[in-house]
Computed example of a mutant assay.
Amino acid sequence: MKEIKAFIRPNKVDDIVHHLKDAGFENMTISMAEGTGKFQDEEAFVSQKFSITDSEIAKLELVAKKEKVDAIVKIICEYGCTLNPGDGFIYVSDVEKVYRVKTGLKNGEE
Rank of each mutant, 00 (worst) to 15 (best):
M1P: 00
K2E: 03
E3K: 00
K5T: 14
I8S: 00
P10N: 03
N11C: 01
N11S: 09
K12T: 14
V13L: 09
D15N: 13
I16G: 00
I16T: 03
I16S: 03
H18F: 02
H18L: 14
L20S: 00
K21D: 05
K21M: 14
A23W: 13
G24D: 14
F25I: 05
E26V: 04
I30R: 01
S31G: 13
A33N: 11
E34N: 06
E34A: 07
E34H: 04
G35T: 13
F39S: 02
A44I: 15
F45H: 15
F45Q: 02
S47Y: 15
Q48F: 14
K49G: 06
F50V: 07
T53L: 07
T53I: 14
T53W: 15
S55Y: 05
A58Y: 03
L60W: 02
L60E: 15
E67H: 11
E67P: 04
E67N: 04
K68I: 02
V69K: 01
V69M: 01
I72S: 02
I75D: 00
I76G: 00
C77H: 07
E78L: 05
E78G: 09
Y79G: 06
Y79K: 02
Y79A: 07
G80L: 06
G80W: 02
G80P: 04
T82K: 03
N84G: 04
N84E: 11
P85G: 07
P85D: 13
G86H: 07
G86C: 10
G88A: 05
V92R: 00
V92Q: 03
E96D: 12
E96R: 06
V98Q: 15
R100G: 04
V101K: 01
K102E: 09
K102W: 13
T103W: 11
G104N: 10
N107S: 11
E109K: 05
E110R: 08
